[in-house]
Design a protein around this nucleic acid. Structure first.
Lengths: 267, 267
DNA sequence: CCTAGATAACTGGTAATACCAGTTGACAGA
DNA sequence: TCTGTCAACTGGTATTACCAGTTATCTAGG
């Protein structure tokens, strides 16, 4: 069963060279790490619940018998990993784990790579299609309802010619699909992908919006997916999702090349 | 092209309720965020290179015209996102972005969910198989060499009955496969998966090691994958990887149920 | 009595300072 | 040349203080 032990020795032995001897480098334990550990454990065992207000920095410092800066460092980390929401002057509140703040920090690093945008699109396809493969096994009426209401929102947005509402409904639709897969990891991964897309667009990349003559086609595609699920035809639904995402990627590629050419001719 | 705008409005409008008005909540910009941003930008544009030593906290505080605690908060975040390596008494050094420290913090939260282990295995399958799909298009001789040398290490470990070396070679093998896919995202995602496995095992879960009577079978499977790649038979290689991972998952399931039963009877 | 506005007691954000512990490198003695 | 010491770093932690924003209370005015 080496295949598992693999994962144990990876980070242990790869970085340092003396893994043949059995000496491991000593890393001094820092105070903020201990605080962090206690916090995470308390969340795990339910001592702290989502939405709950955590004590003030001064109280925590007193409780932990450490100084306020140490507490602050731990809180800073908790903020970055998206486990708490800090309101200056207010207090800190526990929330559902969200990786977005972390992604915000590293996003520029990722996008500094060539062709990262396209890879991201491909990756999104991968997880969404996988979600569709899982969806059949444990599909419920509630899942269908959630997807249906997203579709209805999309329809309303189309009628009212409201791209923003349509966008929100679109993401809600795909989110519902992921939720129906009942896979926690896939949901979290989608969260990361969504944050990355957001930063990509905010940073001026992939600005393929505004031209919503395709809005009706998109709506029809989503409607098709919904109807397939309604009939419990999961194979068809999967194919439709695949076709939909491929189409979206095609639109992206078209937009990018259209944007690239004038950029080059300007040189 | 609503499908893209979606991602822009997601985190903007979902959290607050007044997205119909257009008012966005004001979040006061904190000093450490500004420092963070400057740092990340400097890494992006190459002002700071991997391995380079960054100035001391006191120097940075002076340069940025802020206090040392503010600098420390930024450094703390950089440490968590795995962009710098801090040696107490030494200094801080830039390194390749690695998500492991971040994963270390949130791992307990993730594993506190039921059936996360199995989901993780399934997810690993997903990305590895996807990597095998990509591998055909851009496979080079260097890729084959890297995979081959990992296999050779695995063989040596098998002869010498050295599970640890075999484990290292195993992960190196799969890593080479991911590298050959030329997909940055898949590589990074594998990194995360590997970190998670490490924490799972360290935390006493999935301790399915030691019994290496299966080592030869694992070696043969890896060898088969290599030989298929040698003949550029990518379809066969993909099937073999799929079979290999399914087998590994089966072993896991067997071990878990074997462990679960005595645990229950002990109650 | 009720409401509007001021006030006081919070909160987190930042700063300045000091001291400790570990690392490093140079220097002096063997 | 080698070795041990020591001084000058480094980051880790603690203390204290003050600022700005929020919140809740209380008071003065209606």
């Amino acid at each position: 069963m080496i295949a598992f032990q693999v994962f144990f020795w990876y980070t242990e032995t790869m970085p340092d060279k003396n893994h043949t001897t059995g000496f491991k480098p000593i890393a001094p334990r820092k105070i903020y790490q201990s605080i962090l550990e206690q916090f995470v454990n308390m969340v795990c065992d339910g001592s702290l619940k989502t939405g709950e207000k955590i004590p003030s920095e001064r109280e925590l410092a007193e409780s932990f018998q450490v100084s306020r800066p140490s507490v602050r460092e731990a809180l800073r980390v908790l903020e970055i990993i998206g486990l708490i929401d800090i309101q200056p002057g207010g207090g800190a509140y526990l929330k559902e784990l969200s990786i977005s703040p972390f992604i915000s920090v590293i996003a520029p690093l990722l996008f500094s790579r060539d062709s990262f945008d396209l890879e991201l699109l491909e990756f999104r396809e991968l997880i969404e299609i996988r979600a569709m493969e899982l969806i059949g096994e444990r599909f419920t009426e509630a899942d269908l309802d959630a997807i249906g209401s997203s579709l209805k929102e999309m329809g309303k947005a189309l009628e009212g010619n409201d791209p923003e509402a349509g966008a929100v409904a679109d993401i809600a639709f795909h989110r519902s699909l992921l939720l129906a897969s009942k896979s926690y990891i896939l949901q979290k991964v989608l969260e990361v992908v969504v944050s990355l897309f957001e930063h990509a667009i905010r940073g001026g990349r992939s600005l393929v919006l505004q031209e919503h003559e395709d809005a009706r086609q998109l709506y029809e595609e989503h409607k098709g997916i919904y109807e397939a699920l309604e009939r419990r035809d999961f194979n068809l639904a999967r194919s439709l999702v695949q076709a939909h995402l491929t189409m979206v990627r095609g639109l992206y590629a078209r937009t990018v090349t259209a944007k690239e050419i004038p950029a080059e001719s300007a040189l």
